[in-house]
């Protein structure tokens, strides 16, 4: 599945099950390789994607992931958007704290993934759910 990726187009993957989280990882890896991220950076962005996709599934009740190649003129990068229409995050500051968890995890998903990427934006509301955008640039 990784061979026929059209990098000009955003790649979408719905997140409804465990297997979808695996697919998100594979998709992000394929794009990260295509934009020539270093091995360590590939590993970081795939790990972050895995954490965030699992959050989308577990806390957001499922949703979708979109992977895009971005270019700021000097460097290329991978941008990933995780969107769900779940209950939203009530206390964002608390949720971003290392070790805090509302769902029995290790509490590293949000705070940890933020450290693994270059840009991290989060929009959340109790009506429309949560939308997280992360970007990793090549060096």
């Amino acid at each position: 599945m990784t061979a026929g990726i059209d990098l000009g187009q955003p790649q979408a993957q719905s997140v409804r099950s465990d297997e979808d989280v695996v697919r998100v990882r594979q998709l992000v890896r394929a794009v990260a390789v295509a934009v020539k991220l270093s091995l360590v950076d590939q590993t970081k962005v795939v790990t972050a994607a895995s954490e965030l996709a699992r959050n989308t599934l577990v806390y957001g009740g499922g949703g979708s992931v979109e992977v895009t190649v971005v270019d700021n003129g000097r460097r290329k990068g991978v941008q990933i958007v995780f969107a769900d229409s779940g209950p939203g995050i009530a206390d964002l500051d608390l949720a971003m704290t290392d070790g805090y968890t509302s769902g029995g995890g290790l509490g590293l998903g949000l705070s940890g993934s933020r450290r693994l990427v270059d840009e991290f934006q989060i929009e959340t509301s109790t009506e429309t759910g949560t939308r997280i955008t992360v970007t990793k640039w090549s060096r």
Binding site: L39, V40, Q42, T43, K44, T47, E51, D98, L106, L108, S111, G112, S113, R115, L116
Partner: peptide, 14 residues
């Protein structure tokens, strides 16, 4: 464990 995985785990805080 691969080096890249170890580096990532440290960054993740695990």
């Amino acid at each position: 464990m691969r080096p890249a995985v170890a580096i990532t785990l440290v960054e993740l805080g695990l």
